[in-house]
Amino acid sequence: MDVKQVQLDAEGFLVDYKEWNEELAKELAKEEGIEELTDRHWHVIRFMREEYEKTGQVPTIRRLKNAGGIPTKELYALFPNGPAKKAARIAGLPKPQGCV
């Protein structure tokens, strides 16, 4: 599966999160300016997907910190300039809708 084969919405987010795989994540990360996904990137991505499957909601930055063990500072370093949106997009999830 690559970016050309999956359906993206107008803002580039996956329409169906089940179409996601790790290869696709790497491609989406490159589009977001992240050349290589480290173990910590994968930790964020996997936690977000697990939460989404459980709750149907993209987790907030606070939830990533308190339940996912990802300090806010680190999250901003891993996904610079808009971490919640970027990480959600790479994880194949919809654009976060909350204000926090």
């Binding site: 930055i61 901003y76 610079p80 300039n81 808009g82 971490p83 919640a84 949106k85 204000c99 926090v100």
Partner: peptide
């Protein structure tokens, strides 16, 4: 506070 946090979330 929400606007400040939200702004950082948008880079």
């Amino acid at each position: 506070l929400i606007m400040a946090n939200g702004a950082r979330m948008e880079g």
